[in-house]
Amino acid sequence: MRLLWLSALACNGNAHALLNYPRFEEWQEDFEWLYHPLLPSTHTLAEVEEGIDGVEILLVDGTLEEGLVKNRLAYKQLFERYAVEAKYIVTVGTCATFGGIFAQGGEGRSGLHFSGERRHGFFDGFWEKTLSLPGCPVQPEVLAGTLSLLRSEEPLPLDTLHRPKYFYAHTVHDGCTRNEYFEYKIDEHRFGALEGCMFYEHGCQGTFTHGSCNKILWNGVHSKTRAGTPCMGCTEPDFPREGLWHTSKRMGIPARLPLGVPRRAYLSLAGIAKAFHIERLERPMMEDKRG
């Protein structure tokens, strides 16, 4: 399958993450890079600007900016030209999907179809064939996996923001090794330590962030929350929010609650869980001599 990767305002993080895909070499055999800014490709950027044929999947990476010129051509012109013929368009990473970090640095910047959560209509005609793969960066398994699924023409259910449900239906909280602490409302966290849930004090957004980070581990090893730093919600339209290491609260009640959990239900359960002191979880397990 033939791929064309067009970066707008990007840091190349998504490409670097893809290079860490453990099965990268094997996976690449099923694809041809018509053009990629870092990888060996069939064409140069100059040739892409002149016009090439056969694009099947157009990968868009980075924040779009009004008036951005790639080499000689306006990015928008280049994008539109290949978007028409491509079978699928994939926004790679949060910048291309929602605007992301770079959108906060200047005027006239956005994702391909979204400014944050708001859908804009510049490229409405391409919405139906677009898939969103947010993440800062997107997990390599998510990008490679989605492209393989498109190639094999497997059905790929999408959510309302067009994120593939296989990877984004559940939250980052799912699979986190700190779930026991979440259940009994124990934060007691020190950054980098292995114990404590970071939802109550330390700003963890895992319970309302769609993604697979705790099931598909980064580099096969870890995730933010497993390693001891809060999830920052990088797959969501409002990324990056402010105060990432701090849980904002209203009279002690977290201002954002786990996805889909009504406030009354959350508060009732929290009240019950808090009433019990689970001594085992309250003491620093790694240092505790009692085992």
Binding site: R250, M251, I253, A255, R264, L267, S268, G271, I272, A275
Partner: peptide, 27 residues
């Protein structure tokens, strides 16, 4: 803890939460 008065305390929490969210009560 407050398990047996949970329903009452929950409603007071909701009252406070709404009040702070609307800017009427001090956080």
């Amino acid at each position: 803890g407050m398990i047996c008065v949970n329903e009452f305390v929950t409603e007071i929490m909701i009252f406070f939460d709404d009040g702070v969210a609307s800017g009427e009560l001090k956080n």
